[in-house]
Amino acid sequence: MTFTDVKGALASKREKAQKVFLALAALLAVSVFVSVLSGPAKINFSEPLSEITRRILYMRLSRTALAIIAGGGISVSGVILQGLLRNPLCEPYVLGISGGASVGAVVSIVIGGTWTILGLSVLPLWAFLGAAATFFVVYRIAEVNGRVPIQNLLLTGVIVGAVLSSIVVFIVSFSEKETLHSVMWWLLGNLQIFDNGLLIFVAIIVVAGSVAAGALSNDLNAFSLGEEEAVHAGVETERMKKVFFLIASLITGACVSAAGMIGFLGLIVPHFMRMATGHDHKVLIPASFLAGGIFLVLCDTLARTVMSPSEVPVGVITAVCGAPFFIHMLRKKSRL
């Protein structure tokens, strides 16, 4: 009797998850379509495609691809950190990792001069190194007697993040007007990518990291009941904390190095997916990846079209679109 109940409950949960995945996949397809077809330049589909049309399509496609990867990656990173630190308000930008990436990027812009094609291949490397260095610094500071208490990790991350952002402000305050513009553009997020190698590099890290997190979703579930609960369930907590923090850092570092700072995404996408699918990370991680991709593709489409022909930084769009929606959902939820 109970066996059929339990089996039925599991089956209906699976069914619900499948429906959500199907809906997200359809939405993603639609948003890619919309994104590729919209922009300041009209696309003429009369055959054969002209050279210029082909170039525009290629640029939009690579841009959309980066939006999916970065949106998905930052959202998954948010889910991991929220579950690990047991705090639904965590996002990759709270923990200093992206702060490290932005210091690296800003240093690279200041050293390398203006925003050039040549500079672009150096900048992501700097940003990624900045993120990696921050991971080690945060982890070392948080460590006490060979253990890293979760609360220490959170506090250290927040403090290191604050220090890093003041370093960015310091560097910016001394830079030339020209440089300043590049820095601001970068800090607010920009998805145009000119370097296929970079796109592939970011895609590999984000996909590998997300798959690894998905494979470890049972560990993450145990962590989200609390660290002691995780020990009782049989999780090797000290090792897994390092693994999850490293995965989240690599994903964030890769995304930020290619797309700049795109805030808010890592907070609201996981939140919405928690409402849609529940909290089981086996479902939550892939769902957040898809939803993050959709959200960033749509935001980027808006960024390109809303003030056409000039472009709005995509980070501004994610915040402006995300915040009211988020507040509405929270209010609706608390009224229930």
Partner: peptide, 11 residues
């Protein structure tokens, strides 16, 4: 235990 994420009982 304090509950941050409301999993279902079965989960």
């Amino acid at each position: 235990p304090s509950i941050v994420f409301p999993f279902t009982g079965l989960e």
